[in-house]
Amino acid sequence: MNGIEQETAEGCTLIRLRGEVDLSWSQQVRQAVLEALSTSTRVGVVLSEVSYIDSSGIAALVEGFQNARSKGSSFALVAVSDSVRAVLELARLDRVFPIVADIEAIPNVSGAPAWKP
């Protein structure tokens, strides 16, 4: 059920997560995100098939986002499922992360769409 897949498309590294992201494997998610950012300047985490995420999973994404900002890379959450969005909203992080509908919309440079009024 749970799974991480990595692929490269249109000059962008995609990390596709599946299942329930929780404490039992969020460390793997964190590592996969940081590794992708060490080799690519444009990283997207696809969350359409994530049915649950806890704070340790959110923390892994936050760390990825901060890492990308410090390096001037681009980082976005792609196709966020309703249950993930509910948790992001609850944590008031839905306006912090760049959230895009599909791969094409992942920005080329860091920052630009990250802060919405």
Partner: peptide, 11 residues
């Protein structure tokens, strides 16, 4: 406080 972009203490 919520909305802070930090990875700790969110739970």
């Amino acid at each position: 406080p919520l909305g802070e972009c930090r990875s700790g203490g969110l739970g």
